[in-house]
C-alpha cells in the first residue's frame, strides 16, 4: 500500500501550483456541480443525476441518497454509506457508470440494480430474445423505434419485468454488452 499522505499532497493544487488531476488509485467524490469541478474532465453529481433521468427516466429522487465517486479514468461508483473523502480503499459501493467518453455507458450491474425504475429506453425482449441476449448474442431488432445508443434490455419474469443488462442499439441491431463473465446460457422460458 502506498502512503496516504502522499496523495493528500498531490491533490493540493495550491501547494504545488499544478491543477488537481484524477488519481487512478484513489476514490474521489464527484463535485456537486460543474461549477465546483476542480479536476478536469470529472463528471459532476448534477450531471450524473441528470443523465440517468434524461436517458432512462430514472428520477433524481431514486439516486438522491447515494454518493458518487470516481477512481480510474471515468469510472464512476455509486455508494450508499459513510466514507472518508477522498478514500484509499479497494472498492466503494459498485461501479455504475463510465464517463469521460462521448456516450456515457451504464454498467450491467447498475442497470440490474436500478433499471427497474426506468421509464424510457427500455427494450422488453421476448423469451427467445432474452436468452440470446443473456448469452451475449447480437440480434437484429428493426422494430425498435426508440433512441439509438445504450438501452436497458429487460424481460418478463415471475409476474414482473426485470432488467437483464445493457444493450447497444445501432443500425437495426441490438448488441449485447453483457460482460463475458456474466453471460449465461439460460433456457427460453415461456411465461
Amino acid at each position: 500500500m502506498s502512503d496516504p499522505d502522499r496523495d493528500e499532497d498531490r491533490s493540493d493544487a495550491d501547494r504545488d501550483g499544478h491543477e488537481p488531476t484524477n488519481d487512478g488509485q484513489r476514490f474521489d467524490r464527484l463535485p456537486a456541480t460543474p461549477a465546483d469541478r476542480e479536476v478536469a474532465g470529472r463528471a459532476s453529481r448534477e450531471e450524473v443525476l441528470d443523465w440517468w433521468d434524461e436517458r432512462f427516466g430514472i428520477g433524481r429522487d431514486v439516486l438522491a441518497g447515494y454518493s458518487f465517486w470516481e477512481k480510474g479514468a471515468g469510472k464512476v461508483w455509486v455508494f450508499n454509506g459513510e466514507a472518508a473523502d477522498p478514500s484509499r480503499i479497494e472498492a466503494i459501493g459498485m461501479a455504475f457508470l463510465r464517463t469521460r467518453q462521448e456516450h456515457w455507458k451504464p454498467t450491467t450491474r447498475a442497470v440490474q440494480r436500478f433499471g427497474g425504475h426506468a421509464t424510457r429506453n427500455v427494450v422488453e425482449l421476448d423469451a427467445e430474445r432474452a436468452s440470446r441476449f443473456a448469452a451475449g448474442e447480437d440480434q437484429d431488432l428493426p422494430e425498435w423505434d426508440g433512441d439509438w445508443g445504450y438501452l436497458i434490455a429487460a424481460h418478463r419474469i415471475a409476474g414482473g419485468t426485470a432488467p437483464i443488462g445493457v444493450g447497444l442499439y445501432l443500425y437495426d441491431e441490438l448488441r449485447s454488452v453483457v460482460p463475458k463473465g456474466s453471460r449465461a446460457d439460460l433456457p427460453v422460458v415461456d411465461r
Binding site: Y66, N80, G81, I89, I92, M94
Partner: peptide, 12 residues
C-alpha cells in the same frame, strides 16, 4: 457484491 446489487459496502 456487484452481482447482488450491494451499494453500502466499502472493501478494504
Amino acid at each position: 457484491a456487484e452481482r447482488l446489487g450491494v451499494t453500502n459496502t466499502i472493501v478494504t
